[in-house]
Design a protein around this nucleic acid. Structure first.
Length: 440
DNA sequence: CCACGTAGAGATGCCCGCTG
DNA sequence: CAGCGGGCATCTCTACGTGG
């Protein structure tokens, strides 16, 4: 019957196993048949889990407003005190926080308000306890509903919890608070370094396609706003001088209900994965439709670029399994003379040079587009074929390295989060004696 | 107190209809 | 009437409200 006996737990003798209701009062902020009256425009914030920040402060801007009568009705039933906790009981289950408010707010019916009995429990200890894996396990096991998970109030009250004497709770709370602060800072730092890597990635690409690889080369002004200075021996050219550009324009009346499971591949922007076309996710169309539009039939090594909604997402056509053609929202590009390498164009269009151009050309319209006219008039710096080859080689290597590092850091973050959970679990189940631990 | 479907926002793929 | 500028429609994501 007891959930805790399934967990391999040896509890220190002075710890007690109790129901959550013994150590805290659990209040349903808005029992049904008491739905709050919504205010149109001005009113008092009605707080759901999405309106509570990580530190427990509430975001009264995102919260929807209710009429004061509803708030007063809630205030008649209870008051939110300093140190009270909230626990989400619908959809996003759990997610406990110590709520901090500095103005009058009402709590949504989807939250349970947990008021710790201070003579029995330290509220910070309770916070970590509610965040621990053994509570998560009970949350999962006892939640009901199929399309939507929910936790009954009685279920929450009946959660089995392990509680040591107050002095030990205080020690655990202090220990975990310090540890978590440190861990959270490290995790934050790792997240930031991923952002930095992303920036570094962009600047390496941009540097390479605007300055080349030789740092000592003489520079000149390109005369183009979004390019800046380039090596003296480089030229500025436009897409339209060297490139074949076509999209599924005019539509030939193709509609999505003509998409079928077999036949020529139909490539759209969502099929772009890591710079290549992911053939397995493509739709297909009939042979007749394929033959109808020769200008957008694809060839090996074509460079594709998205133009509607998502702008500038790129893919190179490689290992084409059979005939393939463009869907809408994408341009196919192909060199018409031997002036550039497709892979070089890939890096150039990934660079900030192109981003800058796009943002300069952006219109005020609600939906973002890259118009053919805009695209073919993109001026860009172009070195010799030999230099392009060197740059491509260099970027392939450097960017691969950066992507590998970013991948590693992401894995570290996952590991740290796991460690965070296990530390909480061990501390609130008495597996580690925090009084013997050094806080550093 | 349980059980259930959906609103709202944002993103963007798909398509329409005008025009030179 | 091909080709283009422009925008609607639909999907995804997230967290909610209420009838029985």
């Amino acid at each position: 019957m007891s959930i805790l006996k399934y967990l391999d737990l040896i509890i220190p003798s002075e710890w007690n196993k109790v129901r959550l209701a013994t150590i805290a009062n659990i209040i349903d902020p808005e029992p049904s048949h008491r739905a709050p009256a919504l205010a149109d425009g001005e009113g008092f914030p009605y707080i759901g889990i999405r309106d509570v920040n990580n530190d427990g402060t509430v975001n009264t801007v995102t919260a929807r407003p209710i009429k004061e009568e509803s708030l007063i009705e809630q205030e008649k039933r209870f008051k939110i005190d300093d140190g009270d906790l909230i626990f989400c009981r619908v959809a996003t289950l759990g997610n406990p926080k110590i709520i901090k408010i500095d103005k009058r707010v009402a709590l949504s019916a989807t939250l349970a308000l947990i008021k710790p009995k201070r003579e029995k429990v330290n509220n910070i200890f309770l916070l970590y306890l509610l965040d621990s894996d053994y509570i998560k396990l009970q949350t999962e096991l006892y939640s009901t509903g199929s399309t939507r998970k929910s936790l009954g109030m009685e279920t929450i009250r009946k959660f089995e919890v392990l509680v040591p004497p107050l002095d030990i709770q205080n020690a655990i709370a202090e220990y975990l608070f310090e540890k978590m602060t440190v861990l959270d800072n490290i995790i934050e730092g790792k997240k930031r370094s991923i952002e930095l890597l992303e920036q570094q990635r962009q600047s390496i690409i941009t540097e390479a396609v605007t300055k080349g690889l030789n740092p000592n080369v003489k520079m000149k002004d390109s005369g183009v706003e979004w390019i800046g200075e380039i090596p003296e021996h480089w030229n500025v050219t436009k897409i339209k001088y060297n490139t074949y550009v076509k999209g599924r324009i005019g539509w030939q009346g193709l509609k999505s209900d003509e998409f079928v499971d077999e036949g020529p591949y139909l490539v759209t922007g969502t099929d772009f994965k890591n710079g290549y076309v992911e053939w397995s996710t493509c739709y297909h169309i009939s042979e007749e439709r394929y033959n109808e539009a020769p200008p957008i039939q694809l060839k090996e090594n074509d460079l594709l670029i998205t133009k509607d909604g998502t702008i500038g997402k790129l893919a190179i056509v490689k290992d084409m399994p059979s005939k393939a053609i463009l869907n809408s929202g994408v341009f196919v590009t192909r060199p018409v003379n031997e002036k550039y390498l497709s892979e070089y164009m890939y890096w150039l269009l990934s660079s900030n040079v192109f981003d800058k151009y796009i943002s300069l050309m952006e219109t005020g319209s609600t939906i973002k587009h890259l118009y053919q006219e805009t695209f073919v008039n993109f001026s860009y710096p172009l070195p010799s074929l030999k230099e392009q080859e060197e740059i491509v080689k260099c970027l392939n290597m450097k960017i691969n390295d950066i992507d590998n590092i970013a991948h590693l850091v992401k894995e570290q973050i996952l590991k740290l989060k796991e460690y965070r959970q296990s530390l909480i679990y061990e501390a609130v189940t008495g597996k580690i004696d925090v009084r013997e631990m050094e806080l550093d």
